[in-house]
Nucleic acid binder design. Structure first.
Lengths: 335, 335
DNA sequence: TTGTACGCGTTATCAC
DNA sequence: GTGATAACGCGTACAA
């Protein structure tokens, strides 16, 4: 059953049915009621494809999460929180959300072509896109608006993004450890192909410098935003006897905590730990983790709203949104 | 630029371009190469809406996850694993994945109508749909094929589903606790509006009965598949001095473990714990959790394949797939 | 307030 | 192996 069929049953023309569906004011109440009841009775669904064909809009937003499985699967509830924010906002704005999950390789031209099809989605949100990613270089040729969650590297300054001030976050975390008297402060980074990891490391160094403390590269380990990276990173650090650790994420911190415990260290007495994110694992660890809380759900919501504004040309590119973070003090630092 | 434009540039007709795009064999190699190069050069994307209009297929699968936020956000990496399986399979089958996240209320007719629009998605996958959910009663009127992940209640026996044998899982978990000498075995359930919780409880009771042990209702607490439910559930159980706990999920078990520790109980000496799922938190707990491993990613993959088979009418409803589980013994039980 | 007529970009069916 | 043409179902001038 299509518009035409509904129209016949209601004794009106196709256009009138269309007007009813699209809430046009130019329909008499009597006609509207009659049409609505037929629509209800026939369980009519407008054909989205036909509509999209003429309106040149699908009202679908694409979300691309190209993180490798080991990150997507193991970063505690970071991604669920992000998805929750994205999903809630798309629904509130009456859009649908198309999701592209998992790694994309250079060979998979077919997939990249599909993702960037301007007739399928009205806009795209990229989550944690690394600068070595095959999609990264194709962004400039994209014909629909897009928003990145997490700041891209400087060469993509024309891009819209929603992020947090990771440099400041790294500084605050490290300053806290300095303030409580720690001097041999270690750092386990995230993937360095993401600015988040980069910036948190920069913040860590800033704070050390500002306090007149040396930057000891034996106390800095490159990691991956995973529990395993935290665990093995800590094992690497132990011989250099840190008295504190700033981990690039709570999941990393939890892995490091486990390694420290297994080595017989007491936390926080022998080792203070600060994480980043404030996801579930921060509260579930023993001791609970001091951390830098970031508004993960908000990042998803704000990115979605921004994208929709771009789609409707209510704002123009590039837009850069930076959301606030907050130090949350728990038992893993003592005090 | 559309088919017509490509056709002009390549000096052929629209139909020929269409044939090239759809890999029809009835095109000479010379023509095909010419057309392909124009397509490449113009960065042409076929209009999906126009194609869907005539083919009556969108090649989009809808995934509905109506879990309340506190479950979706807090069940460790259960949902990421499921999503990973769903995403991987949809990609492999050359479909796109549309996602509907979050609670749906009775009032939101608009949303329910959108989700069930047969012109938007070719089929639907419902994840953890509770029997008190507004969508539950609408399933029979759905005009596109659908697959449920996790078995629905008996009144929906006409539905396709992919699940595991939760009764047997509950039995195996409880039998293990009995085998190692436990007698006062408690159980914290999941949401009882889901058959998973129901069946695991049934399995627990079966095992007790088979061993000639009494079913003590003071040792059974109704929970919610969350860490908090496990934590508070354990507090409720402590006065009745259980010597073992079978928790409906690992996340629940982790919460219970924390409560037990805080009460001064040693695990596994004073209390043995078995969880369910084998998600990350099982390995990250101290001690690591004995658990019933279920193939979460596989559930997503199999459900997707089944749905696509239904869409192409390669199989007919109802299909019921039951995947295997496995007891994984770790330190939380001793031994 | 309602109806008519055209176009959106593709696939499918024929004819050649 | 290729081209012309008729749908597919909707929105929207424009006319009435």
């Amino acid at each position: 059953m299509d518009l035409e069929g509904i129209a016949r049953k209601a004794g009106v023309s196709r256009s009138t049915v269309s007007r009813v569906i699209n809430n046009s004011p130019n329909v008499s109440d009597r006609t509207r009621q009659r049409v609505l009841s037929v629509i209800e009775q026939e369980n009519f669904h407008p054909n989205i494809a036909a509509r999209a064909l003429v309106k040149r809009r699908t009202d679908i937003i694409g979300v691309v999460i190209p993180s490798p499985a080991n990150v997507f699967l193991s970063d505690n509830n970071y991604y669920p929180m992000l998805l929750s924010g994205l999903g809630q906002a798309t629904r509130a704005l009456d859009y649908a959300m198309l999701m592209w999950l998992g790694e994309v390789t250079h060979d998979d031209q077919h997939l990249m072509h599909k993702i960037s099809n301007p007739h399928l989605t009205d806009g795209l949100i990229f989550v944690s896109l690394t600068n070595d990613h095959p999609l990264y270089t194709k962004l400039s040729r994209l014909r629909i608006p897009f928003v990145m969650i997490d700041r891209p590297f400087a060469d993509l300054d024309y891009a819209n993004y929603v992020s947090i001030d990771n440099v400041r976050g790294g500084e605050v975390a490290t300053e806290h450890l300095i303030r409580i008297g720690r001097r041999r402060i270690a750092h386990i980074t995230g993937m360095m192909t993401i600015t988040d990891a980069h910036d948190r490391l920069a913040g860590y160094k800033n704070a050390l410098r500002a306090a007149g403390l040396p930057i000891d590269y034996r106390l800095i380990v490159e990691g991956q935003f995973t529990y395993e990276a935290g665990y093995h990173g800590m094992k690497t650090l132990l011989p250099h006897q840190p008295d504190a650790l700033f981990a690039a994420s709570d999941t990393v911190a939890a892995g490091a905590l486990q390694a420290a415990k297994e080595a017989g260290l007491r936390v926080p007495e022998d080792l203070s730990i600060v994480g980043f994110d404030d996801v579930d694992i921060a509260l579930q660890s023993n001791p609970a983790l001091t951390t830098i809380r970031q508004p993960i759900r908000d990042k998803g919501e704000v990115a979605t709203r921004l994208l929709v504004d771009l789609i409707h040309e209510r704002v123009s590119s590039p837009q850069h949104v930076v959301l606030p973070t907050e130090l949350v003090v728990r038992q893993s630092c003592g005090g």
